[in-house]
Amino acid sequence: MDEHIAEYWRKNVRLKVILLTIWGVVSLLLSILLVEQLNQVSLGGFPLGFWMAQQGSIFTFVILIFVYASTMDRYDAELEAKVNGDRASS
C-alpha cells in the first residue's frame, strides 16, 4: 500500500507545481512584470495587461481551483481502487 500512497503524493505534488506555475505566470509575470509590453495589445477596449491584472487573473484563479479539485477526485479514486485491489488479492 505504501508505494501506492507514495505515487499518489508524487502525482499530487506534480499537479500543484503545474497549477502554481500557471498561477505565478498569470498573476505575477503577465499582470505585473510584463504588463507594459502586454498593454500594447488591445482586447475589446481593454489594454491586455490591464485586463489580465483586473479581470483575467481572477477568472484564472477560479478555474485553477476547480481543475485541482476535480483532478484530485480522480487521483483519490485511483488510489482507492489500487488499495482495494491489493487487499482483495492478498
Binding site: A53, Q54, S57, I65
Partner: peptide, 29 residues
C-alpha cells in the same frame, strides 16, 4: 480605492483573490 489608483488597484484585486489558490492547493485539504 481602485478608482483613484487605476491600474495599481490590481494589488487588492489579485492579492485578495490569488491567496485562495494557495489556500486550496497547499492548506485547506
Amino acid at each position: 480605492l481602485i478608482s483613484f489608483l487605476g491600474f495599481d488597484g490590481a494589488i487588492y484585486l489579485m492579492g485578495w483573490t490569488g491567496g485562495y489558490v494557495l489556500l486550496a492547493l497547499l492548506l485547506a485539504p
